[in-house]
Design a protein around this nucleic acid. Structure first.
Length: 479
RNA sequence: GGCGGGGUAGCCAAGUGGUAAGGCAGAGCUCUGCAAAAGCUUUAUGCACCGGUUCGAAUCCGGUCCUCGCCUCCA
């Protein structure tokens, strides 16, 4: 089944076809973190979805070139940097949060993107792009030295604005926006490409043909994606809030640079498919610090939750629906995953070193069908848990040979290459002390000294091990 | 005000015309010395509400109520 999903550009579900003539390579871009603070679970819902999309494309046999930028210069970063008591450089400051971001990223089992460019490393490319827009007469300089993008002139040359989100300029509430804007732009909807240096910027500025300053918010993504993926690329992903204005402005800048100043040129399309992810609610409300429902990954780790539990929960709902993230849900995620772990552990015991054989289970096909249909993860999980139930039944009825168990594990591995929720840790060695207690308990049970055997079971439990008696003898499990 | 999503069991969440997936929680049974794990069974005559179309509606149409997001930094 071909992959289909909702393309924000066309506002409908489309079948995905890459621009690669061989149908193999896919260029994928997503706006990465702005590194001014620790990222929160809302940010990570997006990054986990991006990771899932990339993994599923690879599952489908595509070769994905995945670019995720790091925004390491913007208003907020400069504000924080200049507020910090010590004198540190921009890079020193942002690298703290960049490092923290990737620690969290790894905990969530997200694959590293193929290329992770930093905005500040692509200033020349941004200036080049701004230069083209100036040449085309789409950009203009204000008296303070800043450069703005003129939406009016862009549209006059044949550019389309409002491709992702329908904007009715007469209805936009521009009042506050104009009032709050310190720059003198021609039209309220125009946006900054280059912000002239002001005293508050401190040491954060770069030279440019238009004077010292720093890049506007949107230009980095246009410049970096063009440099790394080309003028037109396949997929651009991001949170729903970025559709307007950020992504819309990216389109305008990128396509605007391909127009000609006399008019009459067709713009080169920027991106072929756009995918936007809904935000999450926390405990039924929009996440906010004042409501006390604002969680960074670190907050959740401190409460004892693991990356894979968080990943499972964040992947449990459809990407275009808002997910209600709750601690109760996280506990549910833990139970669901341990049921899955249990099934997999039994399969591993059964399989031993056997080679996989036999017909594949329905799992892979059902999972493929589910996700091919607009990344319907809920249906994907249903396929997984149907498989768990069937597998458990076969195990309980002792109908599974070693090679059949190996076959099932191989099927799971294909699915888990997308979901990535298998435990990361290697099997823990069971300490001699624990094994000795286990043996003592077996002896006590044989002697029907159940008081003693139960006492040992409690002792083991207090040491973090739980016993399960199976027909083949006791099994030890780490709590 | 403009634009766009939602309202499905105790909780989370699929399903866009053919008779309600899946997960968590709960209940009963089997297995067990007892547990644990697992298995089996069970849990919405019902999909915010009111009308309408249809042989048939959670699904389509009209209306009402509630809710979330974007329009301003934002994943």
């Amino acid at each position: 089944m071909d992959l289909q999903f909702f393309n924000t550009l066309s506002h409908r579900i489309e079948t995905f076809k890459t621009s690669d003539p061989l149908g193999k390579k896919v260029g994928l871009y997503c706006c990465g973190p702005t590194v001014y603070d620790f990222a929160h679970i809302g940010n990570f819902r997006t990054f986990i979805f991006v990771d899932m999309v990339r993994r599923f494309l690879e599952f489908k046999g595509f070769q994905v070139k995945h670019v995720m930028n790091i925004t390491d210069v913007d208003d907020k970063i400069i504000q924080r940097l200049n507020a910090s008591p010590e004198k540190i450089t921009l890079r020193d400051y942002t690298s703290i949060y960049e490092k923290a971001f990737f620690e969290d990223f790894d905990q969530l089992n997200c694959l590293r993107p193929s290329i992770i460019p930093r905005a500040t490393d692509y200033i020349p490319q941004m200036l080049e792009l701004i230069g083209k827009l100036m040449e085309n007469g789409i950009a203009y300089q204000t008296p303070d030295g800043s450069i703005f993008f003129s939406i009016q002139r862009y549209m006059a040359l044949g550019g389309k604005y409002g491709q992702l989100v329908k904007i009715n300029f007469d209805e936009v509430r521009v009042g506050e926006r104009i009032k709050n804007d310190e720059y003198e732009k021609e039209n309220a909807a125009d946006f900054a490409l280059w912000k002239a240096r002001v005293p508050g910027d401190g040491e954060v500025f770069w030279p440019s043909p238009w004077g010292e300053g720093r890049p506007g918010w949107h230009i980095e993504c246009s410049a970096m994606s063009r440099k790394l993926l080309g003028e037109t690329f396949d997929l651009h992903l991001g949170g729903e809030d970025l559709a307007f204005p950020h992504h819309e402005d990216e389109i305008a800048q990128s396509e605007g640079s391909t127009l000609c100043k006399e008019g009459g040129c067709k713009p080169t399309p920027f991106v072929r498919y756009w995918l936007h992810f809904s935000h999450l609610l926390v405990e039924g409300k929009k996440m906010s610090k004042s409501l006390g429902n604002f969680y960074t990954l670190r907050d959740l780790f401190a409460k004892g939750y693991t990356g894979r539990e968080i990943r499972y929960l964040l992947l449990s709902a459809h990407y275009r629906e808002s997910l209600n993230f709750t601690l109760e849900g996280l506990n549910g995620a833990r139970s669901a995953l341990s049921r899955l772990d249990e099934c997999l552990a039994k399969l591993k015991e059964l399989a031993g070193a056997a080679e996989a054989s036999g017909a594949p289970s329905d799992l892979v096909q059902n999972f493929d069908d589910a996700l091919s249909n607009d990344f319907n993860l809920s249906a994907g999980w249903a396929a997984v848990f149907d498989w768990v139930r069937q597998t458990n039944k076969l195990i309980a009825e002792e109908k599974l040979s070693a090679s059949e168990a190996a076959r099932l594990l191989a099927d799971w591995a294909r699915v888990d290459a997308v979901l990535a929720v298998s435990p990361q840790k290697k099997e823990e060695e069971i300490p001699a002390e624990i094994l000795a207690l286990l043996e003592e308990r077996q002896a006590a049970r044989k002697a029907k000294n159940f008081a003693r055997s139960d006492a040992i079971r409690d002792e083991l439990k207090s040491k973090g091990w739980v016993i399960e008696d199976t027909p083949k003898g006791p099994r030890l499990k780490r709590i």
